[in-house]
Structures are given as C-alpha cells and as structure tokens.
Amino acid sequence: MSGFPTTRRSTVARIASIDGEERRRAWEALVSAYWKPVYKYSRLKWKLDPDHAADLTQAFFARAIEKDFFRSYDPAKAAFRTFLRMCLDGFAANEFKAASRQKRGGDATLLSLDFQTAEGELVEHPAAPNTDLDALFHKEWVRSVFTLSVEDLRSLCEARGKPICFEIFREYDLDPEDGVSYARIGERHRIPATTVTNHLAFARREFRRLVLDRLREMTATDAEFRSEARSILGAGFE
C-alpha cells in the first residue's frame, strides 16, 4: 500500500515521549479508540456485569498509564491491537485473583468514558451466541476507528465549507434509505447527479485518508500499519 499518508505520528511511539503534553494526547487518542472494544470484550468474555466491566476498563487504562506497560510493546511480535488484548487478558486474570473491588478502582485516575452508551449498544445490538471473542474485539476496534474517522470527516467537511459532502456521504454510505440513488440525492439537494458523485468521491477519498491517518497513529511500524489496513478489509460484518 504505497502512498498511504503519514501525516500523524504513531501514538504508540508518542506514549514513550518525554514531553508530558504529547504523552497525554497520545494516551487520549489510544483510549478513545480502544475503550469500547475493551469494555465490550470484558462484558462478553468474563460475563461481567456492566459496573464491574466499566471498573475493569477504567482500571486497565489507569494502570496502563500509571505503570506505562505499553512501553514494552514489540512490533515484531504482534500487532498493537493484539498486544493490548493480551495485556488486558493478563491484567484481568491478576485482578480476578486479587478479587478486590477497592483495589481495582484503587487510587487510579478516573477517565471520562461513557459506559452507559457502550452498554446501550451492547443491549441494542447483542453479539451472536458463540461469537469468537478475538473476532469481536477486532470488529469493535474497527467500529471505533470508523466512528472516530466519521467524526473527523464531519469536522473536516465543515471546516472546509463543504458540509454537503458529509451529508451526501451520510445519505449514501452511512444511513441510506431504501432505493437510494445519486439522482434521488441530487433532487433532494437540487444539484445534478454528477455533482453528487463528485461530492461523494471527495468524502470517500477524505474518509479513506482519515482512516489511514488513525491507523498510522495507532500502529508502531509501517508493516503493522499495512497489516492493520488490510485487516480492516477482512473484518466480518453481518
């Protein structure tokens, strides 16, 4: 995948930065992409109740920040996504051994995460029985990346004075009505169908760039970046 943009520096690399502000922003980016997969994975893998899973998610990221245990990540061994899941498995096993709610919450910094929304998503869109949990973690990670990138796209279109591009992208790709077509969207916005295709092409091109930016940010090496870009295409959605 030559030509993939490299506009953002890797979050994984920035976590080790000596600049405190940069390190904080890197953690924010990482948590925003991974907290929902971690929460949902915990709910389904260990059958934790919502409060318990929220505590575990909070504690996991808090401990990761405090102990800096993502620093030991070796890109040659696995994708960062896989490494993080393995860290979570190990962390949860230790926590269950200790079995102390106080200790889990402990004196860790509480992150501002909207667990109610995550729980609502799990209830409204339950995972199929016998779901492969590795695949689920992967899918939730893709969902996170795409959700953040869609938000990025909305901001970008607004900043460039092209909110219509995002609107057409939403109507055609995100939430299409039955029988959606370029002509129908064109009629609604009073523009020709060719303009619809141009706007959609712009939005898709930017969406692709933004997803790749996010991926670049969340991976440590070029090889991992390429592999994760390919893994997005391999994710299974019903």
């Binding site: 969902r143 869609v150 712009f202 898709r204």
Partner: peptide, 23 residues
C-alpha cells in the same frame, strides 16, 4: 457520533476500499 451498526460498517469498509476514479 452515534453507534455505527454492522451494515453501515460494511458500507464504510467498501467506501474505504473503493478506488477514487473521479479524474
């Protein structure tokens, strides 16, 4: 951003992969 259901993810994945042939 609200929750992206699986069909939307599938369409986004296709949009992510689709070539830009506008020019």
């Amino acid at each position: 951003m609200s929750f992206l259901p699986d069909p939307a993810l599938r369409r986004l994945r296709d949009a992510f992969d689709a070539p830009d042939l506008s020019d």
